[in-house]
Design a protein around this nucleic acid. Structure first.
Length: 210
DNA sequence: CAATAGATCATCT
DNA sequence: GATGATCTATTGC
């Protein structure tokens, strides 16, 4: 969209002016509801920002694909804590993925943020992801977006209703259709339609799915 | 295009 | 000791 350096710096400032940080009550709801509501919201970390276009809901003990399904461990502790906090886990010895904790304290539902539409700090994102050949590839995957926005395990447990890492809501109305599909990359509960995305958006991690 | 292998380590069995 | 909520490069059609 915006091309010059000056404009890009402005892009983040404008974004902050036009959005409000989502509070605790937003997250203190069933995970599926929070997942759908997160679409179209803006993830902000330092000088970078992106619009959430794809998420997955993970439930509790009843969801065999969820990390929380085996109860409280050192890793899953934050999932059982209060909502509105980040759960960042390390996977495949290489990557980190960002989740947002939902549901009232004691219930471990969470939302995996799978793809963003880059809105601010594109220059920085490109530098952090030199292998991305196009803007579409910058943040179109759960580990791509954490790399592009420098979200790491140091954010595990961070409160996203305040501080450096936040989710913000645009004031205007958003108008888009939500598609639901099975979740990606799991072995258990493969068919559950808990992946939600903005229909037709070109920044989602996969075009087609079934 | 689609399929697959390799990277590489925290976490849990 | 095996496995994984992924990405990338490479191979093969």
């Amino acid at each position: 969209m915006l091309q010059s350096n000056g404009d890009k710096k402005n892009a983040l400032g404008l974004l902050l002016m036009e959005t409000d940080v989502l509070g605790r009550s937003f997250y203190e709801r069933p995970a599926i509801e929070v997942a759908r509501s997160l679409l179209g919201q803006i993830l902000v970390h330092e000088e970078t920002a992106g619009r959430i276009v794809e998420v997955e809901a993970y439930l509790g003990l009843e969801d065999p694909a969820a990390h929380a399904s085996r109860g409280v461990t050192a890793r899953t502790r934050v999932l059982f804590g209060p909502p509105g906090h980040a759960y960042v886990y390390f996977i495949y010895g290489v990557y980190e993925c960002l989740n947002l904790v939902a549901e009232p304290e004691g219930r471990p539902g969470c939302i995996l943020v799978r793809a963003l539409e880059p809105l601010a700090g594109l220059e920085v994102m490109r530098r952090r992801r030199p292998k991305a050949g196009s803007i579409e590839q910058l943040t179109s995957g759960p580990a791509k977006l954490t790399m592009a926005m420098d979200i790491t395990r140091r954010h595990n447990g961070a409160d996203v209703t305040r501080g450096a890492l936040t989710v913000r809501s645009p004031r205007g109305q958003s108008d888009f259709e939500i598609a639901a599909t099975p979740r990606i990359g799991i072995r258990q509960a493969k068919e559950w339609p808990l992946r939600f995305l903005i229909a037709g958006n070109r920044f989602v991690s996969r075009r087609e799915s079934s």
